[in-house]
Design a protein around this nucleic acid. Structure first.
Lengths: 233, 233
DNA sequence: CGATACGATAGAACAACGTTCGATACGACG
DNA sequence: CGTCGTATCGAACGTTGTTCTATCGTATCG
């Protein structure tokens, strides 16, 4: 019932894994073709072993997802810890949040699974702590600090779930680029009744070809501006 | 290939559905036991018909989810349209967002599926328009308006995905209440090293027994404060 | 009024998935 | 050499979304 550790080499016929290799290959599958590509059978084939072997390392798919997520969150955490510290905690918060969001942009599947089951995902908790420590530098109550970090992670996740959605296959096939798909979408909006949808018409040009990172940064800046106001700085 | 309509009554042996009844029962299943409870077989049994019959109304489970979601978003939209209008567009935005979030609190599964596939989900688009129209009353650029509405929906969704997660069965069984589960969670946090996790210790009492609606309102208020600042009002 | 076309239903089968079971190999230790 | 716990694997199970094919009911028409 104890946990396994690396072995230098495996036999000829039987495969020999390790927690590390399982997680690495799981992440590779997620990176290559998104969440639906991560199946126990695909993972077993990649590891050159049997399906049931994976169950010695994880008890369920949920745990596999949690561990894989925490695995890459660990790397994000390293990036965040390498960030230079400024004299403005809110600027530091912004830099951390942007770093986190960038990682999700590179790995869209992260958005869906990030920050579930904080008991297993130890790195998510460390990340939470890392964000929160900046709020300790601000003149806020404990409750305000708690809500501030919740708000920031909320903005990140809220912007990230948009990215997490599987593209509707015609863009995954490569027959249509992501921008073209957005433009088509914008076109259907343009054909709406301008009387009934004045706002949609007002912003359709902004939507067409918009950048997800810009969108996120704007949302984040609104929250951080509110926070700065609250901190009286 | 045309779409069906209600029929006054069905035969004795063969069941007779309607788009309305399919969506209503689908929502009922989602309400009663969450997303995993909505299966084609469970839905067919509830409708007193065969599994394949549902496919005459929807082409896939994804479309079923989209239509079911849009079905209830329609009701939310009605609530939002019934909201009194004030002379402060930001207050109106807040009221709308809170109304939307309340609906998600009552139906946690909404958080996960809300605002995907806006082409099918017509009511989501109308909701988007409804929010955006308030920004037309503010002194902002088109891009700022676009980002403002994205930020607000982002805050709603970011706070909502927390609720959308299936409770870990011991609370679903009723053996443990939601608050007890949170308190256990808080307890593990209290046992962390205070040197390594000063922030977690600072806010653990706020986390313990916290209210999701409070948390959301605080996040929303930060965003709206930032928006008010941006609008120079 | 019988034939026909189409709207609508349904059972059975299929492929894929997560998961479990039982058997079996490997290495360390007595 | 035998034994025990670690680690692996093929095969099977149950459930899921989906498709295939056949059928029923009803309105329409010659």
């Amino acid at each position: 019932m104890t946990r396994p550790q690396n072995r230098s080499s495996g036999g000829r016929r039987r495969a020999s894994h390790s927690m590390e290799s399982v997680l690495t290959e799981a992440v590779a599958l997620l990176d290559e073709a998104g969440a639906p590509a991560l199946t126990f059978r695909a993972l077993a084939q990649r590891l050159g072993g049997g399906v049931a072997s994976i169950y010695w390392y994880v008890a369920s798919k949920e745990e596999l997802l949690d561990r894989a997520t925490d695995h890459v969150v660990g790397a994000v955490l390293t990036d965040i810890e390498a960030l230079p510290s400024s004299d403005d905690p809110i600027d530091d918060l912004r830099a951390m949040a942007v770093t986190l969001f960038d990682a999700i942009v590179r790995r869209p599947w992260l958005g869906t699974y990030f920050m579930r089951n904080t008991d297993i995902q130890g790195n998510a908790l460390r990340l939470y702590e890392k964000l929160g420590r900046q709020t300790l530098r601000l003149d806020l109550s404990a409750r305000q600090r708690f809500h501030a970090v919740s708000a920031i992670t909320g903005v990140v996740i809220g912007s990230a779930v948009d990215l997490g959605q599987e593209p509707p296959e015609e863009v995954l096939d490569g027959t249509v680029t992501h921008d073209e798909f957005l433009s088509r979408f914008a076109q259907t909006w343009r054909e709406l009744d301008p009387e009934e949808f004045p706002f949609v018409h007002e912003i359709v040009d902004e939507f067409d070809g918009h950048d997800d990172v810009d969108q996120f940064r704007s949302a984040l800046d609104l929250t951080l501006a509110g926070l700065r106001l609250q901190a009286g700085a």
